[in-house]
Each structure stands twice: as C-alpha cells, then as structure tokens.
Amino acid sequence: MTKFEIRGLRADVLISEDERQEILKGVDLTINSGETHAIMGPNGSGKSTLAYAVAGHPRYEITEGEVLLDGENILDLEVDERARAGVFLAMQYPVEVPGVSMSNFLRSSVTAVRGEAPKLRQFSKELQGAMKGLAIDPSFAARGVNEGFSGGEKKRHEILQLEMLKPKVAILDETDSGLDVDALKVVSDGINRAQSDGGLGVMLITHYTRILNYVKPDFVHVFADGRIAESGGPELAEVLESEGYERFVKVGA
C-alpha cells in the first residue's frame, strides 16, 4: 500500500537566467496505490509542469509545498533517487539520446532501480516479452534511445519503461497525444497491465477523454490556472467531454 501526496505545491518555470514565471499555484492531490487519477485541463493550465516538477526537471523550480511518497518528501531527493524511490514519469516528448542503445539504457535503468543487475538472459527474455506486448519490433532494442522514433514509437517505449521499472507511482503526461486508435489501445493495455497487480498508482494527464475509454479513472480532476479547480468521479470526464473547458478557462483568466 503506497500513498502519494502532493501538498500545496507551487512551482516556477525558469525561462532564462533572470526570468521565471509561476505556473503551479498550490496543488493538492493524494493518490493511493491501485487508483487512477485523470488530470484534465486546457492547454497551458500547468498539467505538464506538475509532472515535470515532481520528477525534478531542471527547467522548473519548486518554491513551496511537498511531495510525499509514503511520508518521505521526495523533493529532498535527486532526480535519479526519486525514480529509484518508485516515481515514474512517462514524458509527453521523450528525449532522443543518440548512440545510447535502448537495451543498454534499459538494462542500466533496471539495474539502478532494482538495486542489482538482472541476469542477462533473464533480462533479455523479460525485455522481449514486454516489447512484444506493446507491439514493438525487436530491432528497436539495438537502436539509440528514441533516436528517429516516430511520436507513437516514443510513447510505446515510455510505457515499455513503465512495465520494466515497475514503479509505485506513474505520472503519464499526455501519453495518448498523437496516437491513432490502434496505438492508443496498445498503450492503454500496457498501462492496465502495469496496474494489474493493484500496486501502482497512476496520475494520467490528458487533454482528451478518449484514453479514458481504455484506462478507467477512479477520479477525475480538472486542472486550471495552476491548481486543481474541480474533482469528481468518472462522470466528470463526461461533463468535460460535452461542455469543454470554457468554464474553467474563464475562471483562470
């Protein structure tokens, strides 16, 4: 049983050396293991900033608040320590790292997170299985990290990492954007598999309700102007689907 709590989180985006702008204006959210929370909101409301700030992205600075994983403030930890503690971020725009092969990267990553190097044969088998589940061609293992991948291929690989790293909490930042329906199903299946043992808490950031047909949320939160403006059950997504975000954009403006 894991409890992931965001308390009073405020954060700035660092635009240049002496220019910054406050994006998160006091975010409170609690996710227990097994729960799926959809964070929905208009573009520019700060959803991605929330994801990046929690993961420790260098372009954002947290000015107030805490993020507790089973009571421990992960904001005191380095980026890699947060990941090893069990927080995973699937990025909206995964980075290409030329020359570092996907398999090498995954092995380093799995070794770091699990605290010991997996046996090579066992690791290969596990990786091949996970890739197959996400309909990723085996040849991708030898390619550079995200190098020359299409948008959809990058998203599949983010979920591949989710399945390999088995975190306690996963923040999925617009994992559905840019995917066609077939790819969306494949990716959603992956998320559901990762959650199947009931241990994983999911923060699913999305602009559209489409993915919620495949990944069922327990809670839906509307994010506007840097904070959660309204929370509810799955039915809130349907309201947003029919009414859009206008109501919240006006509030934020």
């Binding site: 420790g56 980026v79 990267f105 990553s109 770091a112």
Partner: peptide
C-alpha cells in the same frame, strides 16, 4: 541527463 536520471540512472 534528466531523461536518463529520471529512469533511476545515477548522474
């Protein structure tokens, strides 16, 4: 660096 570290790999 951030991307690799966000997967648990030490700096």
């Amino acid at each position: 660096l951030f991307y690799l570290r966000s997967r648990g790999i030490p700096a």
